[in-house]
Every structure is written in C-alpha cells, then in structure tokens.
C-alpha cells in the first residue's frame, strides 16, 4: 500500500485519475477496514493538508464549506453556528472529540451512510456538492449524489471539494436533533433536521429531512400544508405524523422499525420546534440535544 500526502488540489485530482483513493480523517475508511468491512485501497492519497479544501468562504449568495473542514471546526465556526446552525448541531454529535478533530464534512457526505449526521442538515439547507476531477468541476444536488446506502453517483476520479449552501434569509433557523441511547460515541438511530423561515408570525417555509430511516437521507415532502400556520402543538403534531408516515425504517440491533417510526416523528417535531425558536431569535446553544435535552434527556 502506498500513501501520498497531497499538497495541492491538482495533486489529489491527478492521483485520483490514476486510481488512488482519497483519505482525510480516515474515521470511516480505516475503522471500517479494521472491522473487516473491506481492505484499505492499495493507493491512498492524503487530502487533509490541502488548504483549498479547508476554507469556509461566505459569498454574496452562498457559502462554500470546504470538504476538508472538520466536525470540530463546524461545531464552533461562527458562520456555521450562526447561519447553518443545524450543521453545527450535527457535527457536535459526531462520535467523540477524537473523531470530530479529524473527521470531515466531505468524508461524512461521501461515505454515503444513511446514518450520517451532517446529511439531513445539508438537505434542509439546500446544499449542493461540488465535485472536481481532472476533467472539470460539476455541482450536483444531494438527492442526485446519494444513490443508496454507502453509494454515491460520483465517479471514481471525482473528489467532493466543497458543499455549497445558499445564504440564509432573515427570520430563519435550522436545527438537528438525534435519538441517543448515550451521550458520546453514538451513531444515529434516527435523527431529523429542520429549517424554518417565518413570514411574520406564520411559518413561511419549512423543510425537514430524516436520518437513518431510509436507504439515503430522506427529505420529507407534503409539509406545504403547514406553511402559513402558526407554530403550535397542532402544527408540530402534524410534522411528527408526516415524518413517521414517510419514514421507511428497518429493524436492526439498534431499534425495531416500530420504534424508529415513532421516534422519527418525535425527532422531526423537536427539530422543527428548535429551528422555529431559533428563527424567532431565541439563542439555543449547539447542539440542541444538549441545550434542550431533546433526542436524549438533558
């Protein structure tokens, strides 16, 4: 096995064109290999030292978060915490401090697990993935990117270089909550992200996406009915019901399908509630799970 340490994006893309596989934090690749999920690729190219992948650039219309930005940075970065709070919520729940210090946004997204924590927040924030190769760069929607559990539509020679997220309107907020059996070293059993925008006192727009209840991150549809409503218990109950209905959970070691279907509704309701409160100006610290005790008890 060979490991090359890339110093520029061109290095990486040239390496990928020749069949190398990228490695950043290695928290999925190396751990998976040790657990026997598959041997490490013969040729690895380390991408963690390439500065271009480690920036957060706020543009006029959108913010571009480099794929190499770590979870530890996402959970504390001022722009992310203030504008794209649900990503910070999610990043703060990933694994352990050690995982968060080396695990990256790009790694989380490209690993393609339906249990990825940053996936649902990216979906509700309308993020797109920027993929680069020696033949050029393309930007695609996440629904187009994720094709199944652990599968993406990216070509072997393409690297996700950034996630591009539209800048947020005023009176908006987002949140991510997750069911947790314990408060660290946990993986999503179910989770939900929500983005809420107010139009006066009424809900102007709402987006909800669900973690670990379908082969890929699931964007909830049919929420138009609550646009224009006040954010009250009846509205939140409707969110829970719609989320539970649309989930396609499995039964496994972590939970039965029945329990997942119920708790995904709870998570969706709590995510919308927290997002709405943030949209209304309430300061809820990152992550919501700890600040409000949702998902797991405080």
């Amino acid at each position: 096995m060979t490991l090359t340490i890339a110093t520029s994006l061109d290095d990486i893309l040239a390496g990928l064109a020749q069949g190398a596989r990228p490695i950043a934090g290695g928290t999925d690749l190396v751990v998976g290999s040790r657990q026997g999920k598959g041997s490490l690729p013969d040729t690895l190219i380390a991408i963690d030292r390439v500065a271009e992948l480690n920036t957060i650039d706020v543009g006029a219309d959108a913010t571009r978060i480099g794929s190499g930005v770590t979870h530890a940075r996402l959970m504390t970065d001022t722009t992310v915490v203030e504008q794209f709070t649900s990503i910070a919520d999610a990043s703060a729940l990933v694994g352990s401090p050690a995982t968060r210090n080396v695990g990256t946004l790009g790694g989380n997204v490209m690993n393609g697990s339906p249990a990825m924590d940053t996936g649902a927040p990216l979906v509700v924030l309308g993020a797109k993935a920027e993929l680069a190769s020696t033949s050029g760069t393309r930007t695609i929607g996440l629904d187009e990117l994720w094709t199944g559990p652990g599968q993406t539509s990216a070509n072997e020679d393409e690297l996700c270089v950034a996630l591009v997220i539209p800048n947020r309107p005023t009176a908006s907020g987002s949140a991510y909550v997750r069911l947790e059996y314990r408060r660290a070293m946990e993986i999503a059993i179910v989770g939900a992200a929500a983005s809420v925008e107010f139009d006066g006192d009424a809900i102007g727009a709402v987006n909800v996406a669900l973690t670990a209840v379908a082969p890929t991150i699931l964007e909830v549809t049919g929420l138009n009915g609550i646009v224009g409503s006040a954010l009250d218990d009846a509205t939140l109950a409707q969110v829970a019901e719609i989320a539970s209905e649309q989930a396609a959970p499995i039964s496994d070691l972590r939970a039965s399908d029945k329990y997942r279907r119920h708790t995904i509704g709870v998570m969706a309701r709590r995510a919308v509630d927290a997002a709405a409160r943030r949209a209304a100006g309430e300061q809820i610290a990152v992550p919501v799970n700890r600040a409000l005790g949702v998902g797991a008890v405080q």
């Binding site: 314990r182 408060r183 660290a184 070293m185 946990e186 070691l253 972590r254």
Partner: peptide, 15 residues
C-alpha cells in the same frame, strides 16, 4: 449479534 463497542453500548464519561 452485537459483539462490538458500537452496538454493545457501554456508558461513557459523558453519561
């Protein structure tokens, strides 16, 4: 079925 530390859930210091 859960012979590993991801699925056999020990308490952590955070708990």
């Amino acid at each position: 079925r859960n012979a590993g530390l991801l699925e056999y859930k020990l308490q952590t210091i955070a708990d």
